[in-house]
Write a protein that binds this DNA or RNA. Sequence first.
DNA 1: ACGATATTTCTATGAATGTCGAAATGATCT
DNA 2: AGATCATTTCGACATTCATAGAAATATCGT
Lengths: 128, 128
Amino acid sequence: MGVGMEKKDVLAGLAALAQETRLDIFRLLVEAGPEGRAAGSIAEALAVAPATLSFHLSALTNAGLILQRRESRSLIYSADFERMTGIVGFLSENCCGRSASAGACLPVCAPTPEAANSEKTASPRCGC
Amino acid sequence: MGVGMEKKDVLAGLAALAQETRLDIFRLLVEAGPEGRAAGSIAEALAVAPATLSFHLSALTNAGLILQRRESRSLIYSADFERMTGIVGFLSENCCGRSASAGACLPVCAPTPEAANSEKTASPRCGC
DNA sequence: ACGATATTTCTATGAATGTCGAAATGATCT
DNA sequence: AGATCATTTCGACATTCATAGAAATATCGT
């Protein structure tokens, strides 16, 4: 309990990320790290209208993927990494009948180039 | 190169998973492993109309998340784990300004219960 | 309090999506 | 070839979503 995420939360998170503008926003915030970035800065970086950005920031916030804090006049948004890992974990739960908590079922941690190459030769597999 | 996924592919994958029925299907196939499961078996397990299931299987297939093969009269579907890891990797690319290939930026490999607990105490962080 | 700046809410519109019954297609077995 | 079984395609419907201009709200600095 506590570790596993509710399906509806995962669904909300995926839906939030399944949109080009929001995916761009989220990746920008992942890159920015915990310090985050102001709404205006995001709007400028991605060249989206303020109203449109606000719409998407709300969507990401409601999905729990990003956090908001105020700093002077600016609203700073940052990625919620904990939530993101929860979503990934949900996807690989019970991989090949095993429980995800038993260990790394999917090599989701960025593979080394060598591992990536050997992966190429092997047929699609689950990594179990 | 070849390891990184195109943004449009990631977007398609996320959109495909951002739907309750399809998420259920995919997780069922993740659990089934490389052996996969027949369309009819999936329809029965999830109690969805054949036409509806077919619609969603097409969506997942087009997104590259699942694979199809024939076995006698049945069409067997299985999860494409390689594609899934590609999507996850894309999300954590350039985490906090670093490249994902430099190492595990996000603890996306299922955390041990102990690690999960210590995570609870810390404020949201990126794991870098 | 006032003016300036940052962001959100309101409103409208065009486009895409999920669902399922009915019919059609494709594959198998005898 | 004919009968049967598994799955897909078609058609129609209601619902949801992305976008952005204009107005409203909130915060700050003086």
